[in-house]
Amino acid sequence: MTTILKLDAVSRVHGEGATEVTALNAVTFTASAGELVAVMGPSGSGKSTLLTLAGGLDSPSSGTVLVEGADLATLGNQGRARLRRTAIGYVFQDFNLIPALTAAENVSLPLELDGVGVAKARAAALVALGQVGIPDLADRFPDEMSGGQQQRVAIARAVVGDRRLILADEPTGALDTETGEDILRLLRLRCDEGAAGVLVTHEPRHAAWADRVVFLRDGVVVDESGGTSVDALLDADRV
């Protein structure tokens, strides 16, 4: 499997002296193509920090963040912004759609910002909206859609073009059980088709859709589930 995201001994320290807080402490983390990895932990465990560092929205105090082999620190602001438009898709709890733009326009925006022509960008947006099951809603505005539909648009925006890394921060938080499950099915599908996904969640039921579940406590990875089968864990317990 190709490694798409790699955090190598990454730490993030906020403040200094007496008010110093270590949000992430020497964390090593990878997500490969075709893999969905969930990150779980209580508030303040560092899970959102991990995601913002992976998305290049914040920089580590030490260690390196590599996306498709490129060190985010050496890319500079413009390079990172370009990577966010072309390779990384972000999905947020509150959808973060632009209210004045239609579904198709929301999805095509990152492509247009990257210099793709309007017609070509719209065509790509329609493909992405088809992939998330709402091709008929392309010309609706966010306030004309349900929460579940808006989140589908957000996922389409996160995968439009040829993005290989999807970062999702509590994407089902604002949705009911059934709709949340639909969204997870979609995320799962995008990963099965080759994207690497990182899902930050505090819901065990949602984390269970991932291939691996990484547990964070106080900025440190304390355990991981999924690499080993249940039977192996149970056997280890008996020894």
């Binding site: 039921r205 269970a208 589930s225 249940v230 149970l234």
Partner: peptide, 16 residues
């Protein structure tokens, strides 16, 4: 607790 949580999560992944 952590060891149990990892095993229970693996079971939850299996059901899912």
């Amino acid at each position: 607790i952590q060891r149990q949580r990892t095993a229970t999560m693996a079971a939850l992944q299996d059901y899912t």
